[in-house]
Write a protein that binds this DNA or RNA. Structure first.
Lengths: 149, 149
DNA sequence: CTATTGGTTTGAGCGCGCTCTAAGTCAATA
DNA sequence: TATTGACTTAGAGCGCGCTCAAACCAATAG
């Protein structure tokens, strides 16, 4: 259960910095970590699991304030399981909405790229700085891009 | 082409605040908007289209610094079209990676919810504050949740 | 016995993306 | 004419999520 990992080990494993790990502990997102002689943190597998869970919440854009609420419920024991589930479900519902918005925007941006393709004189697909071929009659600033006119 | 919309009209249409619209113009994300007598902004359809495009970039988490780069290319004329396309494609590639990460996390969180379901004593699916039925032998703090032990 | 390494703490600072304030200008109305 | 109210500007302030700095301590190497 206690795999005595140092803070740097955990940093490498999780991609967080040691700074951030201490910060998370300070604000209560991570409960106090066991210490070796000398006061150095020793993370157990349960700690790692919790951190990885936090990272999943972070990846799905849960604000720290909500993670703190979740952590509070968790530390209050098994009687809060339904509340934790509720919190998670609410969050996932928000995430679904965000994902749909993102997907819509991605689709629109891909269409814009298609549009650019049709506008390009030669279509070299990689970026090439020497690519100022046609000095078209360019309207300087208000070069609109053609959405919802 | 000029549909003489006031800043508040545009705010309502786009969901941005008038403050934010002025801020975007100040930092160069939006090029100087035409003015009515008295100096009030009058937005045209091309302006609206550009703002909606910016919102799509924002929804897909493009930082303002990159939007500024894009805006700069745009105002430099048609010769920058391939660079704009490149910028957009790079961005979309990042977005795809982010979307995949989010989807993986959503799946994991949904599994966690399933797990909670199996742990719950009675399963009332809506949140109920009076739900402290079983005072189980609860481990106070280190109530681990069971990922990767 | 130093010097180095690698951790510790508290608190300050920072980058981002707004958000708000203060002071001023203008157009229309009482 | 006086006042209202919507708009303008430049600049300060804020919430979030880190990120860093300064000072200190413990263990090991030379």
């Amino acid at each position: 259960m206690a795999s005595h990992l140092s803070i740097d080990d955990v940093a490498k494993r999780t991609g967080l910095t040691a700074h951030t790990l201490r910060y998370y502990e300070r604000i209560g997102l991570i409960s106090p970590i066991a210490r070796a002689a000398g006061g150095q943190r020793r993370y157990g597998t349960a700690d790692i699991a919790w951190i990885e869970f936090l990272l999943r919440l972070r990846t799905t854009h849960m604000p720290i304030s909500k993670m703190l609420a979740f952590a509070g419920l968790r530390s209050a024991g098994d009687s809060t399981i339904s509340q934790r589930r509720h919190l998670l479900q609410t969050h996932l519902a928000e995430v679904q909405i965000e994902l749909e918005a993102m997907n819509r925007c991605v689709a629109a941006l891909q269409e814009k790229i298609e549009h650019y393709h049709s506008l390009e004189p030669c279509h070299s697909s990689t970026f090439n700085p020497e690519e100022n071929l046609p000095d078209d009659h360019t309207k300087p600033l208000p070069a609109r891009t053609g959405e919802t006119p």
